[in-house]
């Protein structure tokens, strides 16, 4: 993807957390990617690889150690607080746990209306009507508007959270594992709602998940993260058909297939995830990689792209 139609460009973002005794956790280490208008970029990786931190850093909810996020020609990580706040109208977030991301002391109406109240959009009546309409859109009845979050199921709450995220008509929404806490039966419902919203409103998603099937269902492009770095990024079909990075191959081989007749070769990774406090030198994946050679231990691989926009950070790609 070229930069001209990029909605949001993330450039060399790093987020290091300071630990005790001068230790540093490199949660996000030099990550770059771009999101186009109206597309869904899936972000997958195992627990603790820095997915959520990346999502929060992109929205400037945690301060980045280094790097920039370009939106509308400006680096939002360097904006003063007040200007950043005004931009949040256009950059929203959906959280993982719908049980904790709604204020228990606010009714559903108040929660959904909050972004309008914050930015002073419209008159009181207009705000009310927009909130009511958007709640109807996500499938809540009018009589439920005055209830409190704890009176709703997980799926309903997540739909409320989504309504809150889209009411200010954002261009870009970071979805941090939005369906991980939901039952499988409700999951599809929420995912379909998110896709409908995207079709109708042209909002772009950064969809963070550890569930490869979910990401495959919803994403246009997918980025794979390992130990704070993006190791592969590509259009959805390419990634699932021709995974380039050995880590992606291992991940994909772990997706369960709902058919007992198909026997597939499982790639079992050796060892444990190295500590992000002290990541391996060279390629971070070399300790667990079945193709690792001397070069991988010495030199960190750079992301290389082929003509289809498929990027892989591996020395031995296409060998």
């Amino acid at each position: 993807m070229n930069d001209s139609n990029a909605l949001l460009t993330v450039q060399n973002v790093k987020k290091y957390f300071k630990g005790t005794k001068g230790c540093q956790v490199k949660a996000v280490d030099d990550v770059s990617f771009a999101v186009a208008k109206g597309e869904t970029l899936g972000l997958v990786g195992e627990s603790g690889c820095g997915k959520s931190t990346l999502g929060r850093t992109v929205l400037n909810l945690v301060n980045a150690t280094e790097g920039g996020v370009i939106y509308e020609g400006r680096d939002i990580l360097k904006l003063p607080q007040t200007e950043m706040r005004m931009l949040r109208k256009k950059l929203q977030m959906v959280f993982q746990n719908p049980y904790s991301s709604l204020n228990p002391r606010m009714t559903v109406l108040e929660a959904v209306r909050a972004p309008l109240d914050i930015f002073g959009i419209g008159t009181k009546e207009e705000r009310f009507e927009r909130s009511r309409d958007i709640l109807k859109y996500v499938g809540l009845d009018e009589y439920q508007m005055y209830r409190y979050p704890h009176e709703f199921s997980g799926g309903q709450r997540q739909r409320i959270v989504i309504a809150r995220a889209i009411i200010s008509e954002p261009d870009f929404v970071v979805c941090d594992e939005p369906v991980s806490a939901l039952d499988v039966s409700v999951r599809a419902q929420v995912l379909n709602l998110m896709q409908d919203i995207q079709k109708e409103r042209g909002v772009a998603y950064l969809f963070i998940s550890h569930d490869l099937s979910v990401v495959k269902h919803i994403s246009d492009r997918i980025a794979v993260m390992y130990l704070g770095k993006i190791v592969e990024i590509s259009p959805r079909e390419t990634l699932y058909d021709q995974p380039g990075h050995p880590y992606t191959q291992a991940l994909l081989s772990a997706i369960p297939i709902p058919d007992t007749d198909i026997v597939r070769e499982r790639i079992i990774l050796k060892g444990d995830l190295p500590s992000p406090m002290n990541p391996p030198a060279g390629c971070r994946f070399h300790t667990r990689c079945r193709f690792a050679v001397e070069e991988c231990r010495m030199k960190e691989p750079k992301m290389r792209f082929d003509e289809s926009g498929h990027g892989v950070a591996c020395h031995r790609w296409k060998e």
Partner: peptide, 26 residues
């Protein structure tokens, strides 16, 4: 540290609003 406070911040709530509408009532 609750997620709904971070959610309020992500929605653009000012510090004062976070304090008096989200944190204090809870």
């Amino acid at each position: 540290e609750q997620e709904y406070v971070e959610a309020a911040r992500a929605s653009g709530a000012t510090n004062l609003r976070q304090m008096f509408q989200y944190i204090l009532p809870n």
